[in-house]
Amino acid sequence: MNVCTTQLADLPMITIEGEVDHSATAELQAAVDAAMTGDTESVLLDLGECTYIDSGGISVILGTFRRVRENGWLGVVAPNSNVRRLFEIVGLTVDDKFRIFGDRAEAERSMGASAG
C-alpha cells in the first residue's frame, strides 16, 4: 500500500494505492489521524488505484466515517466495483453521509454545488 495526503478544494484527500490488508491497517490509521486536524469536518479518500481491500482497511474507513458523520461526511473517489461491493456489504452505502464519486472532478463539482 502507498498512502499520501493532499487537498481537494478545502478538504484533505487521502490517496490510497495498492493493496490494503491487515498489514497496512496501522499505517492507514496513522495517515488518517495525521490528515484530520481538529477542525476537519469532512474527508476524501481517493481509491482509484486501490486494487484490494479487506477488513484491515475497511475497519479504518468505518472508524473514520463514524468520526466525521456527526458534523460532516466521508467521500470516496473512484472505488473499483469490487471495493464498492464491500462497502455495500458492511452497510456504508445506505448512509447519505457516505458519498461515492466517480472521479475527482465529480467530487470537486459536488463540493462547489454544496458550498454555493
Binding site: D54, S55, I58, S59, L62, R66, I89
Partner: peptide, 18 residues
C-alpha cells in the same frame, strides 16, 4: 486502542457474505 470496538469483527460477516 485506536479502534472503535464495533469497527472490528468484520472478518466473519465478510466471509459469510462473499
Amino acid at each position: 486502542p485506536g479502534f472503535q470496538a464495533d469497527s472490528r469483527g468484520l472478518g466473519l460477516p465478510l466471509m459469510v457474505a462473499l
